[in-house]
């Protein structure tokens, strides 16, 4: 995995568009969630920032170090970028404190990595219909009653579906036996 990353990264640095695209595809959701964590869910802003960040990488590819730990490098530089851009947008003055490059920040990156894998596998084990209900709630912020009306289903069905989905998420997460530390 790490080796695969390293070789994709190198060929991206050498200007291979396919590798760049692979990198974007592979790390899109990962960096998206990470950005949202720092801006507490400003997802529209994070989305634009992520696009600009990758364009920046593409334009600077010739100057980037060939030997990096890819996820760590991406997390650290994207965090910096997202916070800086947000600071500019909101004319904040104290953002320097947030961009912390200490050992603490390294630990944060590692914890995020572990946690992300967990969230991902939990979500992937949902069936499409369970997932749909969760999506309606999370993405469209609908109430159970609204979902029931929309799907032309009884409220009980939606309750059951939501409950099953969450129970399944919980079961998958539980099996991994990992604590979330943030």
């Amino acid at each position: 995995m790490m080796q695969e990353d390293a070789s994709i990264w190198r060929s991206f640095c050498e200007g291979d568009e396919g590798s760049f695209r692979d990198l974007y595809s592979k790390y899109y959701s990962y960096l998206f969630v990470w950005g949202c964590k720092w801006l507490d869910g400003e997802s529209a802003f994070v989305k634009d920032c992520l696009h600009d960040f990758f364009i920046y990488l593409w334009e600077k590819k010739g100057n980037l170090s060939r030997e990096v730990h890819v996820p760590r490098y991406l997390l650290t530089s994207f965090k910096r970028r997202v916070i800086e851009q947000w600071g500019k947008e909101r004319r904040l003055t104290n953002i320097a404190d947030l961009i912390d490059v200490s050992e603490e920040a390294d630990r944060e990156v590692e914890m995020f990595d572990a946690r992300y894998a967990l969230i991902q596998s939990a979500l992937q084990s949902l069936t499409p219909s369970q997932r749909e209900v969760i999506e309606l709630r999370f993405i469209h912020h609908m109430s159970l009653q609204e979902i029931a009306t929309l799907k032309n289903a009884s409220l009980r069905t939606v309750y059951n579906l939501t409950h099953r989905a969450i129970a399944q998420l919980r079961a998958t997460v539980g099996k991994k036996n990992i604590f979330f530390l943030w």
Partner: peptide, 14 residues
Amino acid sequence: EMVKSMGWLLIAEY
């Protein structure tokens, strides 16, 4: 935070 992250991941996939 866990619930929020799951929501963000869904948005990302979307």
